[in-house]
């Protein structure tokens, strides 16, 4: 399957943190075509295993990209049937007004986010962003119907399908980090063409956006020798500093810093260079906001590397990314895995 089609399919499926069952099943179905076996755990982490080679002490390598997405949740329903909501994960309140949403009540219900109309606002209020407390979701239904169909705790996603743009760019919601899952798919396809010595676990993790929770338990479960986290990083935009962002057309980013294993990271970069694959460097001065944050410190400590795809407008409904970087990242990771040979342990030493 083409990774762009895979991504388009995934982002239409709801998977707000804690409620990833549907997207997990879809991922599992696709993984089954490329892996030796696939399982889903109690928390809906998906594990695809792919074994290669006959080296007896071959490494166990875990890849992780998260399938959960930021979203909203029903907090209360007022007497007129408007829905009060809270956020799951980091949502900028300024993106919410006029957004189209789906409320997953007894059935999926289309709605829009509204607030008090401008002509009722006090002079001066327009300079300030509208607070989430002052917004409601309008389902266009009577209060009785809403109370029949919706209850406190129901999840809500944004409605924003994948749109293709020029130059291989795409935009949509929850590309953070389903593009990372697409990178895993690319790596699987690449590994099918390569000879490799490793037990590779492709893990689609849950609840990253609310505290890297799925990564914690899935890494404990796999207990790998090497961890590879795959996530998105900030793409360059005119309103942010060059130091904190990455070009959209210069390949994926490889992170350096305390959170990542120095020798393995260097190895990953050397492999990319050897095969002439472009990459950028992200310097992370502390624990990163990715699955790598927890992977590194599970059990007795897992040497971990981090590959990231530049993404503009993170945590909005128009997250924008260059699909070319997804392919390149998958290829770098597959070549890195295939480079594991007898004596691979030396790459893990300090």
């Amino acid at each position: 399957m083409e990774s762009k089609d895979f991504l388009a399919r995934l982002i239409d499926i709801p998977g707000v943190s804690g409620y990833e069952m549907e997207v997990a099943h879809e991922v599992s179905n696709v993984f089954k075509e490329y892996c030796d076996d696939v399982r889903i755990d109690d928390f809906y982490n998906v594990y695809g295993r792919k074994t290669g080679g006959d080296l007896e002490d071959r490494p166990k390598i875990m890849l992780a990209a998260h399938i959960d997405e930021i979203g909203l949740m029903v907090k209360d329903i007022d007497e007129k049937g408007f829905i009060k909501f809270t956020t799951i994960g980091g949502v900028d309140q300024r993106i919410l007004l006029s957004q189209e949403v789906i409320v997953y009540g007894k059935e999926p219900l289309f709605g829009v986010i509204g607030a008090k109309p401008p002509h009722l606002q006090q002079p001066g209020e327009r300079g300030q962003s509208v607070k989430i407390e002052d917004m409601t979701i309008d389902l266009g239904l009577s209060a009785e119907e809403v109370k029949e169909l919706v209850k406190v705790g129901d999840i809500i996603t944004f409605k924003s399908p994948l749109v293709s743009m020029k130059n291989g760019f795409v935009n949509g919601k929850s590309i953070d980090d389903r593009a990372g899952v697409a990178v895993m798919l690319e790596a699987m396809k690449e590994l099918n063409r390569l000879h490799f010595n490793a037990d590779v676990y492709f893990v689609a993790t849950v609840q990253e956006e609310v505290g890297v929770r799925g990564g914690t338990i899935s890494t404990y479960s796999v207990n790998p020798d090497i961890g590879i986290a795959i996530d998105v990083t900030h793409g360059d935009t005119p309103d942010s500093s060059k130091e904190d962002t990455h070009a959209m057309n210069k390949g994926p980013s490889i992170a350096i810093g305390p959170n990542l294993h120095p020798k393995l990271t260097k190895r990953l970069m050397d492999i990319a260079k050897e095969y002439g694959l472009e990459y950028q460097i992200e310097v992370a001065p502390g624990p990163t906001g990715t699955d790598a944050r927890v992977m590194q410190i599970v059990r007795e400590g897992i040497p971990t590397v981090l590959v990231e795809i530049p993404l503009r407008y993170m945590h909005t409904t128009v997250e924008t990314l260059n699909m070319d970087n997804v392919k390149k990242a998958g290829r770098i990771i597959a070549l890195f895995i295939a480079s594991m040979e007898e004596g691979w342990q030396k790459w893990l030493s300090y």
Partner: peptide
């Protein structure tokens, strides 16, 4: 409980 700052309760337990 559906959720708080520390946990999103497992949908099946809930």
């Amino acid at each position: 409980k559906v959720k708080d700052g520390s946990v999103i309760c497992h949908p099946k337990v809930k």
